Amino acid sequence: MKMPSKLPRLKGFRFPREIIAYAVWAYHRFALSTADVEDLLAERGVMVSRETIRQWVNRFGRHFANCIRRDRPAAADKWHLDEVVIPINGRKCWLWRAMDANGDTLDILVQPRRSATAARRFLKRLISQFGEPRVVITDKLRSYFKPIRDLAPGADHRAHKGLNNRIEGSHRPTRKREKLMGRFKSPRQAQSFLAAHDQISTIFRPRRYQLSTISYRHARSDAHDLWSGYALELNT
């Protein structure tokens, strides 16, 4: 079976935009390796190496993530912040993640420390993008207290582990990818991959338990329409 091509060809690339977009989508949407995506494309009559797929994911994943951020509704002013350890080359690094009340990932940052300095750096980055929050929910890590008090003095800081279940659950896809990839090779690779992965997962993983069957199908159809539009915006 051949994959049809309706979009203009991407300059300098042998394969149509649809195939590149499909490979990036399949890799980020499901817990697949580049070898798995290679087999999916081969079944459709597209012969491409896993190394080429890896290059597509690294090169164009950021494009799709940026488009999703651009078109996403304004972030809610209630934030959830959390951090989780990710081993990289035998060293502990910390993945800092922020979500809003709608369940959308605002930003992630991979840092070598779990200190007040790291919390301040992450919070300052968030405020520069989204402005000051109304409410900030964290666990009881003391490193959050002074940075939030200094950088967002008007925010209601709620430090309670039970209130942060939503963002703690958002680490599960990261753990799946980490296991599949044999752990991240460097902080830079983890930052680049997860920054794209979190955004792409957002539009293709609506909270199904909150939607009727018809609503879920509409959400899925809208996500694919958006993806096709973003594929048309691809450039070299």
Rank of each mutant, 00 (worst) to 15 (best):
G131T: 11
R188D: 11
L141Q: 11
L109Q: 04
E132L: 15
P187M: 05
N164T: 11
F145D: 09
Y144E: 03
I127C: 01
Q191K: 03
S143M: 04
G90K: 13
K161E: 15
I148F: 07
H171Q: 11
D104C: 14
A159W: 04
A190L: 08
G162K: 09
K124C: 00
K179G: 06
A152C: 12
S186Q: 05
R166Q: 13
G131W: 11
R134P: 06
R175W: 07
G169S: 14
K140V: 13
H160Q: 12
G169A: 14
G103S: 06
K124E: 03
E132C: 15
N165F: 02
R142D: 11
N165G: 08
N164E: 08
I88V: 15
L123M: 01
G169V: 10
H171V: 10
K185A: 15
R177P: 03
M99G: 04
P112A: 02
K161G: 12
F145E: 10
S128A: 06
I127L: 01
M99A: 12
L106G: 10
I137P: 02
R91V: 10
R114S: 00
S115G: 04
E168H: 11
I148S: 04
C93H: 15
R166I: 13
I88A: 13
L106F: 12
K92E: 08
S186D: 04
V135C: 09
F145L: 10
N164Q: 10
K185T: 15
R121F: 00
P133M: 06
I127V: 06
N165M: 04
T174K: 06
R120H: 05
L141M: 13
L126W: 02
N102P: 03
R177K: 15
G169N: 15
A190K: 06
I167R: 07
D150F: 00
A119Q: 01
R91W: 10
L109S: 03
I127Y: 01
P133G: 06
A119C: 11
A101T: 07
A159N: 08
K185C: 12
M181Y: 14
I167C: 07
W94R: 01
R175K: 15
T105I: 10
G162A: 12
P147F: 02
E178N: 09
R142V: 10
L180D: 09
Q189L: 09
R188V: 11
I88F: 12
I167G: 05
R134Y: 08
R121W: 00
R113I: 00
S143H: 03
R114P: 01
Q111P: 02
L106K: 09
Y144N: 05
F145H: 11
G90S: 13
F184G: 11
R188M: 08
K179N: 05
I148M: 06
R125D: 01
S128V: 00
I108H: 03
R120S: 08
G90C: 14
R91Q: 15
W96Y: 03
G103K: 02
Q189P: 02
N102K: 14
I137T: 12
S192L: 07
F130I: 15
T138W: 05
N89T: 13
K140I: 11
